[in-house]
Amino acid sequence: MSALLLASAGLTACSSFSSNNSRVPDTTMTKVLVELHLANARRSHVGTLPDGLKDSVFARHDVQRSDFEATLRHYSRNPKAFDALYNTVIDTLKAIESRLRQNPYDDAPQPPPDRGSSSAPSE
């Protein structure tokens, strides 16, 4: 899974970070990778994703695409660090899957209370 992400990112540059790029913090990188994997899973079920979804994930986490790609390049040269980061991504995805298997409608909106029946006892 991690090899596919690295390959799809088009990692061609040799330097880790340019003066214009900064490394994305591990916690943020984990969240971004989790969301990108969830989007990929959605695409495999629905066939398409909204335009700009990847950019919206980056924006939600205040990450520049160039910083994300520079961070991936950094990890491509530090596989042990990448494995550690990716284990967190995998654990997070497994936790999400487990939660959804236990409560598939956990995130579904709840119906409004039935206003036609009274919960007060009649006398």
Rank of each mutant, 00 (worst) to 15 (best):
M1E: 11
S2H: 08
A3C: 06
A3F: 09
L4I: 13
L4Q: 13
L4M: 07
L5V: 15
A7T: 02
A7C: 00
G10K: 08
G10L: 08
G10P: 09
L11N: 08
A13S: 13
A13G: 11
C14K: 15
C14A: 14
C14R: 15
F17G: 07
F17E: 07
S19V: 05
N21Y: 11
N21V: 11
N21E: 15
S22A: 05
R23A: 05
V24W: 00
V24R: 03
D26R: 12
T27H: 03
T27K: 10
M29D: 04
T30W: 01
K31Y: 04
V32D: 05
V32K: 03
V34C: 08
V34L: 06
V34W: 07
V34G: 07
E35G: 11
L36D: 03
L38Q: 12
L38A: 00
N40Y: 14
N40D: 15
N40E: 13
R42L: 04
R42V: 02
R43K: 06
V46N: 04
G47L: 01
L49Y: 10
P50H: 10
D51Q: 10
D55K: 01
S56V: 00
V57P: 01
F58M: 06
F58D: 01
A59H: 00
A59Y: 00
A59I: 00
R60K: 04
H61Q: 01
V63R: 02
Q64C: 09
R65S: 10
D67E: 05
F68Q: 02
F68S: 00
F68D: 03
E69T: 14
E69L: 13
T71W: 03
L72G: 09
R73D: 07
R73K: 12
H74K: 03
H74W: 15
Y75G: 14
S76T: 14
S76E: 14
R77K: 14
R77E: 15
R77M: 15
P79A: 04
K80T: 05
A81K: 10
D83E: 13
L85V: 01
L85I: 03
L85A: 04
N87D: 14
T88M: 05
V89W: 04
V89Y: 07
V89G: 05
V89L: 06
I90G: 06
I90W: 12
I90K: 14
D91M: 06
L93Q: 05
K94F: 10
K94Y: 09
E97S: 11
E97G: 06
R99W: 06
R99F: 10
L100H: 03
R101E: 15
R101N: 15
N103F: 13
Y105H: 07
Y105M: 09
Y105N: 05
Q110K: 09
Q110C: 07
Q110S: 10
P111W: 03
P112R: 01
P112C: 01
P112W: 00
P113D: 00
R115G: 01
R115Y: 08
R115K: 12
G116M: 14
S117Y: 11
S119K: 11
A120W: 04
P121V: 02
E123I: 11
E123Y: 11
